[in-house]
């Protein structure tokens, strides 16, 4: 066969899908409180007592309606992390997070869920560790919109050092 006969044809395409997402009554309360008052609210399951964030209407484990609202402190513990060397795109803005950066899972004190976010620490694995204490850094009140980007990042609490170092 000639080169012409084995030329494979392709067709580029771009699909843009607009959508409207409704948070529902439970997440609405948490996002409104985060935006307007800089406070983080979770819900507690009346049966297993787990405190769940984001809040949801039903405890998946117990199949009962979650009731009591609990305000969480803005401090927590890093349970897992990575140092990202890929320029991950924020799909909601189309803008990349510039690598390298620290990305991790934080459990706010008293909460059973974890929260994935940027960790404002040097991208050096000697300076970040599982168990590190961190606190929430919020955008200034007027700049908050009511989603997870109202948290700029977590920052390590001062005066702590990596165990064993």
């Amino acid at each position: 066969m000639t080169a012409r006969e084995t030329e494979w044809i392709s067709i580029p395409m771009t699909v843009d899908v607009p959508y409207r997402f409704a948070a529902g009554r439970y997440l609405t309360k948490t996002l409104t409180q985060l935006r307007d008052n800089g406070r983080i609210f979770a819900v507690e399951c009346p049966r297993c007592r787990r405190i769940q964030l984001p809040p949801r209407i039903v405890c998946a484990q117990c199949h009962v309606r979650n009731g009591r609202w609990v305000e969480l402190p803005l401090e927590g513990t890093l349970v897992a992390f990575t140092i990202m060397f890929l320029p991950l795109t924020d799909p909601t803005t189309g803008k990349p997070h510039e690598p390298p950066f620290v990305y991790g899972s934080v459990r706010l004190d008293g909460c059973d869920s974890v929260l994935d976010h940027l960790i404002h620490a040097e991208p050096d694995r000697g300076k970040v560790w599982v168990g590190m204490r961190c606190r929430v850094v919020l955008r200034p009140p007027g700049e908050r919109v009511g989603d997870l980007s109202d948290i700029v990042h977590f920052e390590p609490l001062p005066d702590q050092s990596r165990p064993g170092s």
Partner: peptide
């Protein structure tokens, strides 16, 4: 009630 308009772009 909270609603947001977003979009997904796929190439």
């Amino acid at each position: 009630p909270f609603e947001v308009d977003q979009h997904l772009t796929a190439h």
